[in-house]
């Protein structure tokens, strides 16, 4: 199943819409609640990142029986040093963005912590692509 959502850069009032839609679908699929939680936190973080840093973006969501792949493609300034951005405490968010409670510098590391797989690629001056993969199999202690 394939879904797409548009993200508008700089508009925080709409941030979270796609995450809510994805959450609803995961609940419909009866996915383990711990996985739902991790997926939503990672996706929301990624969605807010696009709003905070990019001009516009698209979320491509693909569900199958084993997993969901959430790919966020944005047009924006890109990330010059991904490795540095992956370190805890690093933030490129402007002070206005930080005052709104976003961009506390937890973005990518927090996404990595919650996602089963996280791929980030970026081209400075063009944009960034973040791909979050979550697997649905229930944790062993649940069986």
């Amino acid at each position: 199943m394939h879904f797409e959502y548009q993200i508008e850069g700089g508009n925080f009032t709409r941030a979270g819409f796609a995450s809510s839609e994805i959450k609803k679908k995961l609940k419909q699929l009866n996915v383990d609640l711990g996985i739902v939680k991790r997926t939503v936190v990672a996706t929301y973080e990624a969605e807010v990142n696009v709003v905070a840093h990019a001009y516009s973006g698209t979320i491509y969501v693909d569900f199958d029986e084993e997993k969901v792949v959430i790919k966020l493609v944005d047009e924006g300034p890109g990330i010059p040093d991904i490795e540095k951005a992956m370190t805890e405490g690093f933030s490129t968010a402007s002070s206005t963005v930080r005052e709104m409670g976003f961009g506390a510098g937890m973005g990518l590391p927090n996404m990595k912590k919650n996602a089963d797989d996280l791929q980030v690629s970026s081209e400075v001056g063009k944009g960034t692509t973040v791909q979050i993969t979550m697997f649905f199999q229930k944790p062993d202690n649940d069986k």
């Binding site: 199943m1 609803k24 679908k25 609940k27 419909q28 699929l29 009866n30 996915v31 609640l33 569900f63 199958d64 029986e65 649905f136």
Partner: peptide, 23 residues
């Protein structure tokens, strides 16, 4: 205990089919 009313089916492949149909 959680008692989700959103789930379309206990079984994920059935739920997936139903989700497609809903869409």
């Amino acid at each position: 205990q959680p008692r989700s009313m959103d789930k379309l089916d206990e079984d994920i492949s059935q739920a997936m089919k139903k989700m497609k149909r809903v869409h």
